[in-house]
Design a protein around this nucleic acid. Structure first.
Length: 274
DNA sequence: TACATATGATCAT
DNA sequence: TGATCCTATGTAA
């Protein structure tokens, strides 16, 4: 389930588990044997996340760049001695007290600071990164103003805003009442600000909770989050034809930027957001 | 056993 | 726009 909130959470927990320590690295599966050999026995100085990208900084200057893609997974094992790694583990990183397993990533590579900078330059502002809200909002706004694509497509473009995926794009548009089809450049400044604030709030909440829950409890008749049944956590994503939790209108679905997007045609009527 | 699908992204055309 | 890569899981055959 890798949208930005998951990646930042991995960065945080892994930093606590193996950050600052001497690491034994290996590639049981073999596809990263060369890189693992290069990192083995070195100190992992820090782990940093930007959008859906992870950067592991090693003593001596190398950076390990990881992107989970759709299928990549981490496992964290907190124990002095790691269990035997499974065949499809691309990379293991073990400190004295914990082991991080990585399987199925789209990207697992060593890069130098120059490459990292180039990569970073292509990413839009990330609501989960430190920095001035004003500056990030301004960047988001400028990025949107340049696009001719619908806002629903722009939110998936990591150069516009980093960290939003297919679940959050549907959910933040629902929560801000914006029509996904609206051209990105046509959004009113207040709509852009609402969108940024909402993205920021939802991503932070997701990072903390470790999962995506965007519904207000009142809309699903729950008192506590722990009361939520599966399938009650979201307003729009994956709910084709089901009644909107706010107004009862059947949720619509269409293709946008090669993925399905869902929205409520009453809560997000055509043109809403201008 | 095969196929469809999934919270991602890039590259070729 | 379509093909491709990454992997696991659920459903159909």
């Amino acid at each position: 389930m890798p949208e930005g909130h998951t990646i930042h959470r991995h960065a945080r927990t892994q930093r606590g588990a193996i950050g600052g320590q001497l690491i034994r690295a290996a590639s049981p599966q073999g596809r990263f044997a060369h890189g693992a050999k290069r990192l083995d026995g070195r100190v992992l100085e820090d782990i940093d996340a930007h959008g859906k990208h992870l950067f592991y900084r090693w003593e001596g200057g190398d950076t390990l760049h990881v992107h989970l893609g759709l299928f990549g997974k981490f496992k964290l094992h907190r124990a002095p001695s790691p269990p035997p790694p499974s065949e499809n583990t691309r990379l293991t990183m073990s400190s004295v007290t914990a082991t991080v397993y990585l399987a199925g990533p789209t990207i697992c590579e060593l890069i130098d600071p120059h490459q990292e900078e180039a990569l970073r330059a292509r990413l839009g502002p990330d609501p989960l990164r430190n920095g001035s809200r004003r500056a990030k909002l301004a960047a988001f706004q400028a990025n949107l103003a340049r696009r001719r694509i619908p806002i629903g497509a722009a939110l998936l473009d990591q150069r516009v805003i980093a960290g939003i995926g297919n679940v959050y794009r549907a959910e933040v548009l629902f929560r801000t009442g914006i029509d996904p089809h609206l051209p990105a450049a046509a959004l009113a400044p207040q709509a852009v600000e609402r969108l940024w604030s909402e993205s920021s709030r939802q991503l932070k909440q997701g990072e903390k909770a470790g999962r995506i829950i965007t519904v207000d409890l009142g809309d699903v008749g729950a008192r506590r989050r722990t009361d939520l049944a599966r399938g009650e956590r979201l307003y729009a994503y994956g709910r084709t034809g089901e009644p909107c939790r706010r107004c009862g209108t059947p949720i619509s679905a269409t293709e946008m930027a090669n993925r399905t997007i869902w929205w409520c045609s009453s809560c997000q009527p055509a043109g809403a957001g201008t």
